[in-house]
């Protein structure tokens, strides 16, 4: 017991050091102009996409349900946060964090309302009904007056800094990991593995499906709020099913059910179109071909369900040490 708790403590310290180090390194590069404004914008986008990918991974990777309406939940978070910062009259610096929380809550509530009927279905049918709900949300945003109709929202304060996106990502990451490595997380995984056995083992499968679904929607809402205040404007047609599919592609590309996979894939798939910019008109073509090739040769995604952990590193180092005398 003693030994394991000291190891837990060590890992905690190590985690905090790494998280802080990455933050300081990136922040320094941005403030010292190593990254120009375009590159630092890209960094923010990467962190937003990581939150988005992680959030969908909860519903699709861990719970195992194919959701094709994720952009809808993101849109709800984005509009909620933006409408609050624009109309509340409070200073943006106070309203923005509150707005993000409000965005998460409203997304979660809508997630719950969608989940009640949708989670009664399975597999492809669930995919279709989430797609339909996602489209409905996008259409309604286009129709309502208070959401700016087809023109969308403009003049949203652009306050999503690198620090905001980074710490929101870290919070999401930690919450999702700690949640998944608990009895509640196990219950969700067991549903993915075999719903009938899970129910027979005493898991209230509907409740846990709902928890995973609502969580997924909430973090998508958070990503949406950050996105709105990064872009400075919102166009309702952005949040259509194509965007949901883009997010799904990031999840599958990284590996369904792998947190590490989601992170790496969000980085690669955000950077890739930018790196391919030199090929301008060919870039989407290359993107499409890469996607097909990856699926054919590695259908489980880059990471499958595996994770990059300290244990993997230790094992890797050990193996290298053992190999050294031989080579």
């Amino acid at each position: 017991m003693k030994k394991s708790s000291s190891r837990v403590f060590k890992t905690y310290v190590l985690n905090i050091v790494i998280i802080a180090a990455i933050f300081i390194a990136l922040q320094l590069m941005i403030t010292n102009g190593v990254f120009n404004s375009y590159t630092s914008g890209l960094v923010v986008q990467i962190f937003i996409n990581m939150i988005l990918t992680l959030s969908l991974n909860v519903a699709t990777g861990f719970l195992g349900e194919l959701c094709l309406g994720h952009a809808g939940f993101m849109a709800i978070g984005a509009y909620t946060t933006a409408l609050l910062t624009i109309n509340s009259g409070l200073p943006v610096m106070i309203m923005f964090p509150l707005g993000l929380i409000a965005g998460m809550i409203i997304s979660g509530i809508i997630g719950f309302l969608v989940g009640v009927p949708a989670l009664r279905l399975k597999g492809d049918y669930l995919a279709i009904i989430t797609l339909a709900f996602g489209e409905m949300i996008s259409i309604l945003l286009r129709t309502f007056k208070f959401t700016g109709g087809a023109l969308g929202l403009n003049g949203i304060p652009r306050v999503t800094s690198f620090a905001y996106s980074y710490w929101c990502f870290i919070i999401s990451l930690v919450l999702i990991i700690t949640f998944m490595f608990s009895r509640h997380g196990r219950a969700i995984l067991s549903i993915r593995e075999d719903e009938i056995a899970s129910e027979a083992t005493g898991v209230n499968t509907f409740k846990y499906k709902m928890i995973a679904f609502v969580m997924s929607a909430m973090f998508a809402g958070l990503a949406g709020g950050l996105f709105a205040h990064f872009q400075g404007n919102l166009a309702p047609e952005k949040f259509n099913y194509n965007y949901s599919i883009d997010i799904m592609v990031m999840v599958v590309f990284g590996g369904m059910g792998s947190v590490s996979g989601s992170i790496v894939s969000a980085i690669i798939l955000t950077l890739l179109p930018e790196l391919l910019r030199g090929f301008s008109e060919f870039r989407m073509l290359v993107y499409a071909i890469m996607l097909i090739v990856l699926m054919i040769f590695r259908p489980e995604g880059m990471f499958g369900r595996k994770e990059v952990t300290y244990r993997v590193f230790r094992r890797f180092l050990k193996r290298n040490k053992q190999n050294k005398p031989v080579s």
Binding site: F179, S182, R183, H184, R186, A187, G202, V203
Partner: peptide, 12 residues
Amino acid sequence: KTGFHHRGRYSI
């Protein structure tokens, strides 16, 4: 451990 779930106490 999933079998222990239904008697589990700690909250989310």
